[in-house]
Design a protein around this nucleic acid. Structure first.
Length: 491
RNA sequence: GCCGCGUUCGUCUAGGGGUCCAGGACGCCGGCCUCUCACGCCGGUAACACGGGUUCAAAUCCCGUACGCGGUACCA
């Protein structure tokens, strides 16, 4: 087994979203490509934003997407536990070590004090002053207070946080696998809180401790983390650990611009949680295929990839560097390809509950035949809901089609056609077609003069599958009934 | 504001000094097929952000500007 170890580390503050899935996917592809290991780690250190069923949703969504993990909750690989809430002791111990070594310090400032500090030091040039080398001496911490003061505050149980002590004047450089060399000046890095006053670590501490302890070799995460990477590098250095390789993925942007957030996505009509894609009826393979190509490309012109093909082709070097807009159109296109590879039977079984919700309970064989005939006309199984005429008589007739297709002689032709159908020995597409064409000939009109009004009569709309197979599918009784109803309704 | 990262058709992208008056895909438009719609096939529209360098030669290298995005929390 290769020494490559990667992790996907979501925070259970909500359902797994599309950006999270893509991050998971890239980690997964990288791991599988190199025969490495992928870890799922739950970063549940924010008690305030914790969402009860989020972890369950994340697990279920990943499984649906076909991303299986080697290590994680319930799958011990000797590096657990894999929930940060179950690892508190470790962080506490490391934080204390950092305080002892002088790389971190205790601070007592309350949230109000922090806010007032920001107001106090804010200038036009610097509206957002950091808690760091330039301000910490004026705050309440172990660097500004006397030793006695600190210990008496500690003894009295005053809440405190532990902050990383960042010295100004230096710089932190690292080479990002996707972006190349990146440098930050330490003056611009603040004294990040490592341990919160609730005794839990912040992301920054927990993340690097776990990555180290879990022997993570490559950190593949969203670009929003790039600015905090210097803090992480500083932390690795303080602890005497080697930092892993870093790879910061381009962000998924909303078509309206900006990071694809819940709000912007909704505004753009894009589902944001993986759960929604699933319930809308997208194929997981299609979503994966689409997401893989959103920010990465294989360097050739192929567009359709099964998971194995993605694993085969994937490389971090071919991940782009700029943000990418989410394009629902393209997803839809990919999804259509996947949908058409499925049997009518399996699509039918998917759509059944959806129809039932809408009060439609068709015979299974019939439904399967409907799906077969409609397969090329839908991009999602739920599109079938818009073709209710398969299941119930039309109650209205599309105006535009009516104007265009229903001529003076239409009623007569439709009635005659209904009569012909009544007399047919065998009610099949071929015999129906023969009958119709014969009628057209007798009446000396083009076949279209009958076909279009008949379609409107039986379906209420002007488009759909081939008319003859449609009629066969509907059956003689339904067809004839609808024809006669339509004549009196449109007449 | 400051820090960081970006910038090739509307979108996802190929390309990384000459093979590029820039290739593919989605979308859009037109055509073929055809009873309609869709599929499929064929064709079309459309881009190197701008300004300076470097070079015989720049989409490609360098600098600057503009713009976009991210970060600037005891959130992740």
């Amino acid at each position: 087994m290769s020494p490559f170890r990667v992790r996907f580390a979501p925070s259970p503050t909500g359902y797994l979203h599309i950006g999270g899935l893509r991050t998971a996917l890239y980690n997964y592809l990288f791991a599988r490509k190199h025969g490495g290991t992928i870890i799922l780690r739950i970063e549940d250190t924010d008690q305030r934003r914790f969402v009860e069923d989020a972890e369950k949703d994340i697990l279920a969504s990943l499984e649906w997407a076909g991303l299986d993990f080697d290590e994680g909750p319930g799958r011990d690989g000797g590096h657990g536990p894999y929930r940060q809430s179950e690892r508190s002791d470790v962080y506490k111990q490391i934080a204390e070590e950092l305080v002892d070594s002088g790389d971190a310090y205790i601070a007592f400032d309350t949230e109000e004090e922090l806010t007032s500090m920001r107001e106090r030091f804010a200038t036009k040039e610097n509206p957002n002053p950091r808690y760091g080398s330039s301000t910490r001496s004026q705050m309440q911490n172990a660097l500004s207070l006397s030793e006695d003061d600190v210990s008496s505050r500690l003894e009295s149980g005053q809440p405190y946080v532990i902050r990383l002590k960042v010295s100004p004047g230096g710089s932190v450089s690292f080479s990002d696998l996707i972006r190349g060399p990146v440098t930050f000046e330490t003056v611009n890095v603040d004294d990040q809180v490592l341990m919160k006053s609730d005794g839990l670590p912040t992301y920054h501490l927990a993340n690097i401790v776990d990555d180290h302890l879990m022997e993570v070799s490559h950190v593949i995460r969203g670009e929003e983390w790039l600015p905090s990477t210097p803090k992480h590098i500083l932390l690795y250095e303080a602890l005497g650990w080697d930092p892993p390789q870093m790879a910061h993925l381009p962000l998924i942007l909303s078509p309206t611009g900006g990071k694809l957030s819940k709000r912007s996505a909704e505004r753009a009509g894009i589902p944001v949680s993986v759960k929604e894609y699933r319930s809308t009826g997208y194929e997981s393979g299609a979503l994966i295929n689409f997401l893989a190509l959103l920010g990465w490309n294989p360097g050739n012109e192929r567009e359709l990839y099964a998971m194995e093909d993605l694993i085969e082709a994937f490389s971090l070097e071919r991940v782009g560097q700029s943000g990418v807009q989410f394009d629902l159109n393209k997803l839809q296109w990919v999804n259509e390809h996947y949908l058409r590879q499925r049997s009518a039977k399996s699509i039918a079984s998917d759509i059944k509950p959806l129809l039932a919700e809408n009060g439609i309970k068709p015979d299974e064989d019939y439904l399967e035949r409907v799906v077969a005939v409609m397969a090329e006309r839908i991009s999602l199984p739920s599109d079938l809901l818009r073709a209710r005429y398969f299941f119930e008589d039309p109650t209205s007739y599309d105006d535009k089609t009516r104007k265009k297709r229903w001529k003076e002689e239409s009623s007569g032709l439709v009635v005659s056609f209904a009569g012909k159908l009544d007399q047919l020995d065998v009610f099949e597409a071929a015999t129906i077609e023969t009958a119709l064409r014969k009628l057209a000939e007798e009446q000396e009109v083009g076949a279209g003069r009958i076909i279009h009004p008949v379609r409107l009569a039986v379906s209420g709309i002007g488009f759909g599958p081939g008319l003859f197979e449609l009629l066969e599918l509907l059956g003689r009784e339904t067809t004839v009934r609808r024809l006669r109803t339509a004549v009196s309704a449109i007449g």
